[in-house]
Design a protein around this nucleic acid. Structure first.
Length: 275
DNA sequence: ATGGTTGTAGGACAA
């Protein structure tokens, strides 16, 4: 094994309140030993973020962007990173994005890591009558424009909750889900445009191709959904071409959804060679 | 699967 470099493990998770999910985070960290945590829906102001608890776990590099009660993202790492800040997508500063550069010793470029929490979009899939749905579509359109502008040489990884189940087999009930926000034809086509614009590679579907199901979220509102395998894929790990040679493995830590008082999302793990 | 459960706050929203 001489010369091989241990991969860097990036775990992305919509925790639905970082304070409520601290015990689950500790358990996930012990089980999977990630080097980097990308969290969505932290639901906490920055001055109340449990920084010390993450430092105690070894995550001393901390980029957080939160607000009271809603949204909020964080990137926490064992090794120092360079903060790239947050972009005000579609003109709003609502704490849905953070980016950092993971530094590499041997490589020319570091790896850019982006943590996203795309708006859910409310209940009614009609942008003329539901401002939340319109805002979600605008966010995806902004993401597409941004994707086109990105240089091709920097290795770039996008993780997080995109709140769209892209493919037919990313939901357990495609036929009926097409009428619901999160799986409408319009959202799915916007997601396709976004993917094409960035040349993003869908790492999960590279390892688990359709028609196999792939779900990362199971609704709280139907308590048997997880046990019955009735989920949606809302969480992604996406790499540009320059990042692809670094990708070692992608997995889903699905069992966390089966624990007591779980998040409704499961953690997505990406192993990357940084060195 | 238009009902249901969860989190933040301590009522009504957001998801």
């Amino acid at each position: 094994m001489g010369g091989t470099v241990k991969p860097t493990r990036i775990l992305s998770w919509n925790v639905n309140s970082v304070r409520r999910r601290l015990p689950h985070l500790v358990r996930v960290v012990r089980a999977t030993a990630p080097d980097v945590l990308c969290l969505q829906e932290t639901k906490v102001r920055d001055d109340a973020f449990p920084r010390a608890e993450f430092s105690a776990l070894g995550y001393n590099a901390q980029a957080i962007s939160g607000q009271p009660a809603y949204n909020g993202v964080a990137i926490l790492a064992k090794a120092a990173f360079t903060s790239l800040g947050a972009k005000a997508w579609r003109g709003h500063d609502d704490k849905r994005h953070l980016a950092v550069r993971l530094e590499t010793k041997d490589a020319l470029h570091g790896v850019e890591l982006h943590c996203f929490y795309v708006p859910s979009g409310g209940g009614l899939p009609d942008r003329t009558r539901n401002a939340k749905f319109d805002d979600k579509l605008r966010f995806m359109e902004a993401l597409t424009r941004w994707s086109k502008r990105q240089d091709k040489t920097t290795p770039r990884l996008l993780v997080g909750d995109f709140n769209i189940a892209w493919l037919e087999h990313d939901v357990w009930n495609h036929k009926t889900a097409r009428r619901a926000v999160g799986h409408t034809d319009l959202e799915r086509s916007l997601f396709s445009r976004f993917m094409e614009a960035g040349g993003w590679c869908d790492l999960q579907r590279r390892s688990v191709p359709a028609p196999d199901p792939y779900y990362t979220w199971w609704s709280y509102r139907h308590p048997t959904a997880h046990a019955q395998g009735r989920g949606w894929r809302l969480d992604y790990t996406l790499a540009n071409q320059a990042c692809l040679p670094r990708v070692v493995d992608v997995s889903l830590y699905k069992r966390a959804r089966g624990w007591k008082t779980p998040s409704d999302h499961a953690p997505v793990i990406t192993d990357l060679t940084l060195g």
